[in-house]
Amino acid sequence: MKKAAIILSFLAFQLSFAQKVKIAEVIKDNRTTEQKLELDKKQKELFNGIFEQFITALKASDKKTMESLMSEKTKKDVTDKVYERLSNDINFTREIVIYKTGYKSLLSGKNFPMIQYKYADDKAEPSPKEIITAVFEEDGKIMGIKPYKQSDENK
Rank of each mutant, 00 (worst) to 15 (best):
A124D: 12
G144M: 10
F54I: 01
A120D: 12
L46H: 05
D40E: 13
G140T: 06
L15R: 03
F47A: 01
F112D: 02
D89C: 06
A120K: 15
Q150G: 02
T79N: 09
L86T: 08
F51P: 03
S16D: 03
T101P: 08
I23P: 09
P126Q: 00
E137L: 10
L107W: 00
T93I: 07
P126E: 07
A124W: 04
V78I: 15
E67H: 09
L69Y: 00
S105C: 07
Y103T: 02
E34N: 12
E125V: 15
I145Y: 02
A60W: 03
E34Y: 11
E72T: 13
D80T: 11
K129C: 03
A124P: 09
A60M: 09
Q53T: 02
F92Y: 07
Q53D: 14
L15I: 11
E125C: 01
K146M: 14
K129D: 10
T101E: 09
K44Q: 13
E67G: 07
S105Q: 14
L39D: 09
E52D: 10
Y119N: 03
V97W: 05
Q53V: 00
K63R: 12
L58H: 02
D89V: 00
T101V: 03
A134M: 12
P113H: 07
V135A: 04
K81N: 14
K59M: 04
